[in-house]
């Protein structure tokens, strides 16, 4: 809620300055002397930003060949628990133009056509959520077989087209 409050204030500042639109605002009034510094205000991007990053990516080393002919011969490296999923941090920062009631789906089964349009299987989603705040963050568990993810942000406003972006792993 703090973030929401901060951005409401920011929005008022923009209006007061006669700015707005898609401009990024980073300057904030200095606090009175002796008061603690406020939490830095993030800028609201001109375009809604989607970010998906692996939480703890491992460094790929040289490929190790396995000579095991049966599972009895396999030796598991210490500490490896054969996990079949990875953790990703999803972050969405909405532009002011997109700052309205919306619904986010993050799905794994989709196609992108040559004209840039998407076809998404919404039964393949890993995340479905309403969005009301400007910022959204979530940790997503993605199984290793997932070749990519697509995020689709649909607006309840009939005049607004959905924002769609994807990541190929």
């Amino acid at each position: 809620m703090n973030k929401l409050y901060i951005f409401v204030c920011l929005s008022m500042l923009i209006t007061a300055c006669g700015g707005g639109g898609s401009q990024s605002i980073t300057a904030v009034p200095l606090p009175p002397a002796g008061e603690p510094l406020p939490v830095p205000i993030e800028s609201q991007p001109a375009v809604t930003e989607f970010s998906l990053e692996e939480s703890n990516p491992k460094e790929a080393g040289d490929m190790i060949g396995s000579s095991a002919k049966t599972s009895h011969e396999i030796v598991v490296p210490n500490g490896f628990a054969l996990s079949s999923e990875r953790s990703f941090d999803l972050r969405i920062t909405r532009a002011q133009d997109d700052n309205e009631a919306a619904y986010l789906s993050l799905c794994s089964d989709y196609k992108q056509y040559n004209d840039g349009s998407y076809s998404i299987n919404y039964d393949s989603c890993l995340l479905r959520t309403s969005l009301s705040d400007i910022n959204y963050e979530a940790v997503i568990i993605v199984t290793n077989d997932t070749p990519g993810l697509v995020a689709a942000l649909w607006f309840m406003d009939e005049s607004k087209k959905p924002l769609i972006t994807d990541w190929r792993f």
Partner: peptide, 16 residues
């Protein structure tokens, strides 16, 4: 319910 988020494993329709 209103404003509920749903996370799925492995997805909304597939099996692990």
């Amino acid at each position: 319910e209103l404003n509920v988020s749903i996370q799925y494993y492995p997805s909304a329709s597939e099996w692990a």
